[in-house]
Amino acid sequence: MNEQPHFILDGRRVPFEDGQTLMTAALEAGVYIPHLCFNPEFTPHGSCRVCLVKVNGRVQAACTTPAAAGLTVQSEIEELRELRRGILQMLFVEGNHVCPACEKSGACQLQAVAYYVGMLAPHYTHFYPRHPVDASHPEAVIDFNRCILCELCVRASRDVDGKNVFAIQGRGLQARLVVNTPSGQLGATSFSIDDKAAQVCPTGTILIKHRGYETPIGQRLYDRKPISMVGDVAQVPESQGGRRHD
């Protein structure tokens, strides 16, 4: 009898099929590995580095590591929680994440993953960069202060919407999400709030106008249960407090 190949994740057998990564196999088996730039609907990116796991003792990104039989993978260990916390803290000081003033607070994946890994404070020295807010579009706003460069909107607009509205430009700490128009304004693009790109942002960078603070505190997506139980904001339907169109 041919048994399905599997690897061991935190002591648990995780079966996989050819072509799956540690992340997709774990997800299918119902095991949560924290992540930000990964979205099962898109090609893995491997940039946020939050999904780091230890594969046979070596730290690797779960979203880009092909699943293979016999691997021993560790995820929920203090060493990795600390590593992930450090990366989350870097993201928090890199941008301007003022949760009390953000419409997406409570339904923000960045926040939820930070809760999940037990981040209490940003720890590092803040950069306080100056970023614009683009409200030129009649139905959507982009607050670049909250962008974590996951490129999900870039990928969604290019690969699903076929519009290529977004891009990343620049190098190092100067890398920026930009809008592909000569003016750089969202209002000058064909972007629509029905686009996939409007449904995948893990933070409050891309916002739908006239719809802020709809859910009372205490009832928001991640208020009561951790992201490991609730799922990614991009996968949860709008009617249940997520971003996915019903």
Binding site: F92, V93, N96, H97, V98, C99, P100, A101, L120, A121, P122, H126, Y128, R130, H131, N145
Partner: peptide, 19 residues
């Protein structure tokens, strides 16, 4: 002990850092 968003990351008052 630092308590609250403002003590931890500047919070709402730090929004003036944009200017």
């Amino acid at each position: 002990i630092a308590i609250g968003a403002c003590a931890l990351n500047g919070g709402i008052p730090a929004m003036r850092n944009q200017f």
